[in-house]
Design a protein around this nucleic acid. Sequence first.
DNA 1: ACGCCCGCCTGTAAGC
DNA 2: TGCTTACAGGCGGGCG
Length: 278
Amino acid sequence: MPELPEVETLRRDLEKEVVGKKIKTVDVTGERATRRHETADDFVNRVEGKKISEIRRRGKYLMMVLDSGDVVVVHLGMSGQLLRAKGKEDVDKHTHVVITFTQGGQLRYIDPRTFGELFVTTPDNMDKDVPELAHLGIDPFEDTVSWVQFGQMLQSRKAKLKSLLTDQEFIAGIGNIYADEILYEAGLRWDRSSDSLTSQEIRRLYRAMTEVLQEAIKRGGSTLADGGYKDLFGEEGSYQGEHKVYDREGEACLRCRGVIEKMKNDGRTTYFCPDCQV
DNA sequence: ACGCCCGCCTGTAAGC
DNA sequence: TGCTTACAGGCGGGCG
């Protein structure tokens, strides 16, 4: 579910809401959520009693830095959600972890499909404990890469643009929705080979990537028809209203009035305008 | 190095 | 009204 804009929205919310707070208790009711630890207690014991000092993001990963030096890494998978609660609200059926703060209030981790997870590690052990984090590609906002460097990265590979954009080892944070929106904005087809782009096309792709993600963050991410994504306070994002191609099969292209098509790439749904994207 | 398929899960919507 | 199937934002692994 959540891609970079949704995770960044959560990061900003968490920064305001939980940084500086001390964790009183941690309740793990869904052990699958902490599956990287041998037991849920391993997780609980390293988190209880600690204060949250900082919230970072890398790609789609959230990192809550504790004053002990440990880091709680959160990956939301397809359906993970972090929700701020006062404590008395009904607990959603799929709540797996509840963090209660000493001054009251809770942070709840909810995840129906259980692809997401939480785990504690240290900055030194992070790459060993979480190899996929060590292999993450550049973050569009955390790393400063010029369009020329970006172009060299594209030229050095020979893959379909959509496959590369959603490859977390190439660029971290872009998933199925934003890849389609970025490619539409850049006027490039999903199946263009990454080594075939002119310098003008590289610039367009680079710009589209930054602009689409920036705008999506500004609008608090995308909440799709299934209502899966909500921010820390349970509020929906509004970028879905700006989608130009995603979930618009058969509808008119806003630029050329042609018909938006749907395809499969790497087993994932892909939406595009066959006239505007070349 | 890449494309393609599967598995991991539950919920929802479409299809019969 | 059921029951069955396909599909959904994620990722990793295996195979050819």
